[in-house]
């Protein structure tokens, strides 16, 4: 995100934030922080910069530090820029039993990046994740909101091709629906 671009939610996102705040009692608007950070991440290129977090703090009338400490605790929040498609591969025991380690190695080779890195064209970021409650359909990975399950290498190839062909804007966990 360029520094000069004004940091402001779209009207839809702003309206949703106001709606979410109303779910919590008067004066407990801080409770909306995590949902609002998901929205912020989706609104601002898939990651949370310090100015974006400051903006969220102002929306919720809390101190910036309260936002930073939360954003840095939860693994779904990216504190540095990421690719358009963030691929999260589950690597915990049950998925490992079904070949998750090979899946990660395959993706590293194919995308020519390591865990945590982004491809030079800014298309993919590879992240390893811990159990995503999909152990019965292992190995699996998540891209945005979508769970890709019972993976084979062919399926992975197909998914990557689909991403390249269709994704133009960064996709986030929050797909701009009601939340």
């Amino acid at each position: 995100m360029s520094a000069d671009k004004e940091i402001k939610f779209s009207d839809d996102a702003y309206a949703l934030v106001q709606k979410i705040i109303k779910r919590y009692p008067e004066g407990k608007q801080k409770s909306a922080l995590i949902p609002v950070l998901h929205i912020a991440q989706a609104e601002f290129s898939g990651w949370l910069s310090a100015p974006v977090m400051d903006y969220v703090a102002s929306l919720l009338s809390i101190a910036s530090i309260e936002v930073y400490e939360v954003a840095s605790f939860y693994t779904m929040f990216n504190l540095k820029p990421v690719g358009k498609c963030v691929i999260e591969v589950c690597r915990t025991g049950p998925c490992w039993l079904m070949g998750a380690e090979d899946l990660v190695k395959y993706l590293e080779k194919k995308l020519n990046i390591k865990d945590g890195e982004t491809t030079a064209d800014g298309m993919f970021t590879l992240k390893t994740a811990e159990c995503l409650a999909s152990c019965g359909t292992a190995p699996m990975m998540q891209i945005g909101e979508t769970y890709h399950e019972s993976l084979t290498l062919n399926k992975v190839d197909q998914i990557l091709d689909d991403c390249r062909a269709t994704v133009t804007e960064p996709i986030s966990h929050w797909s701009k629906k009601e939340i």
Binding site: K30, L33, L37, L60, Y74, T75, E130
Partner: peptide, 25 residues
């Protein structure tokens, strides 16, 4: 409904409550 953001510890009930209050778990 209220969503978390990736932290196993938030399944522990008091961490979950902290998280629901908009804090670290």
């Amino acid at each position: 409904v209220h969503c978390g953001a990736g932290a196993y510890i938030c399944g522990e009930e008091t961490a979950l409550i902290e998280s629901l209050e908009g804090k670290r778990g």
